[in-house]
Write a protein that binds this DNA or RNA. Structure first.
Lengths: 182, 182
DNA sequence: TCGTTCATGTAAGACGTTACATGATTGT
DNA sequence: ACAATCATGTAACGTCTTACATGAACGA
């Protein structure tokens, strides 16, 4: 259901074609709610059928510009206010952590080190994205910045956790009870 | 694909029936990789067909106890070492943040306050879960504790972020450029 | 005996991914 | 002319959720 509201949300800012929305998903929402071309076009057709959006202009190459209707806006507001957001649970990275015991300890270290590295890379990409955006005084910018901050904090948290987790593992070659040199 | 490996992972610790695994998903993996009864039984049948697990005992009420095979263990290890974990992107809570501009500012405050409250509640539930677990010296306990720590840090991060985000919004009734009383 | 727990299985539908398929327009 | 970009649509497949369906065994 969320894709539906993501589209309504973007269209509440300004009218757009499927192709426009596809780019906005790639640029702005890729880290929050990824969607494929296929999904977007299918959902736009459904939204138009249900009267939440309407085709308000047609351009070259079969371009159709959609505008949100009053009904669609009401629908979006209902979603924002009266329904509880679902928690994000599934986490493949964390699932693997549970089963690191099936591997030699060396691999557990490598895995956690890898997490730290990957999240550092993601953090860099997020920073690049942040500086590439033309932040203005619009609502989308204000709230986009707030979402971006979440991403930065998330990555920082992951890195700190990965460092901490490494410290929980026995040292290379250390035996249980051997707490280092005296 | 992850469900398959979650099952192999649990079975690598010890043999279990579908019903046993269902409870372990509810208790230990609910916050990391939720799975329904329907999904678990279906996947166990597939795993048995492909030779990754085998029925090694049958009990009352049609109970079938599954044990991981060498092939299954190899499969699990391959997954752990040679494939990249997929990032967790979809975040409904954050998606809504983008569109808070479609609502009066009051609602944005309420929403962010609500996030803080809900994550505080989740944190409490996680703490309760933590103290309810019989932590021993097994690998699953070691890595389970590490995963638990991630959850604690995640909730703490969310609360700090929600507090920060509230401070970014204009004060109740404040106009842009009006930075409080002198 | 009667309710709860144990125990397994199937089916329909929503959502998401990947791939296929087509063609107009623009810029060099 | 030709390549890149704009622009839309469909089909097959896999995963996840919800609901339906059944029944044995245990304990009070």
């Amino acid at each position: 259901m969320s894709l539906r509201y993501a589209l309504l949300g973007l269209l509440s800012d300004r009218p757009a074609s499927g192709y426009d929305l596809l780019r906005r998903f790639r640029d702005a929402l890729a880290n929050v709610w990824p969607a494929t071309q296929s999904q977007i076009y299918t959902e736009l057709t459904k939204l138009a059928d249900s009267g939440s959006i309407a085709v308000t202009d047609e351009g070259p190459r079969g371009r159709k510009e959609y505008t949100i209707t009053e009904a669609g806006l009401a629908d979006l507001r209902t979603w924002l206010t009266t329904t509880e957001p679902k928690r994000n649970t599934r986490n493949e990275m964390l699932l693997r952590v549970f089963f690191l015991g099936a591997m030699p300890p060396e691999h557990a270290r490598d895995y956690l080190t890898g997490i730290g590295e990957r999240t550092a890379k993601d953090q860099g990409e997020l920073a690049a994205l942040k500086s590439s955006i033309d932040w203005d005084e619009s609502d989308l910018s204000t709230y986009g910045r707030i979402a971006m901050e979440w991403g930065e904090r998330y990555h920082a948290m992951n890195q700190e956790w990965a460092r901490w987790a490494l410290a929980q593992l026995p040292e290379r070659g250390e035996q249980p009870g051997d707490a280092g040199s005296a």
